[in-house]
């Protein structure tokens, strides 16, 4: 590719990628009020990282997010989700019955939904990034 085209691509991505990641966080934490939630946020976050890896090279992206770290996050999200469920059992409720998490049921529901959506977001983002890393590495 022409060097000047690469410069333009890199500079545009430097502006876009922070906005993409910020938007992912907005979708993640605003899912209770607007459209969106863990699934969409995870995918958007992964798209930001994948864009970074495409433009600046996978090695550069893996200096921030190595494959081993991302692999841990795949399981961490599921564990967080299921952990909330097990936690509610220990607090005397049913599996994933958030009402027992806090004294006020509505606050408890808020907390439960926040935590499990976070788990969903972490797993989805990590899975998408992992699949991209592996495919990209396999192509070489």
């Amino acid at each position: 590719m022409d060097t000047r085209a690469v410069v333009i691509l890199r500079e545009v991505c430097k502006i876009i990628i922070p906005a993409v990641l910020l938007f992912a966080l907005y979708v993640q934490f605003h899912g209770e009020y607007g459209p969106g939630g863990g699934f969409q946020a995870g995918v958007i976050f992964a798209a930001g990282v994948i864009l970074y890896a495409l433009v600046f090279g996978r090695e550069t992206a893996q200096r921030i997010l190595p494959l081993t770290t991302v692999r841990i996050f795949i399981a961490a999200g599921v564990l967080l989700y299921a952990g909330v469920g097990v936690g509610t059992i220990f607090l005397g409720g049913n599996f994933l019955d958030y009402n027992v998490l806090l004294h006020d049921p509505k606050h408890a529901q808020h907390l439960g939904i926040f935590l499990i959506e976070l788990g969903v977001g972490i797993t989805v983002a990590a899975v998408m990034i992992t699949i991209f890393y592996l495919l990209d590495e396999f192509c070489e």
Partner: peptide, 9 residues
């Protein structure tokens, strides 16, 4: 019961 505006969530 849940107290959040987005019913889908």
């Amino acid at each position: 019961e849940i107290g959040i505006p987005n019913v889908v969530t």
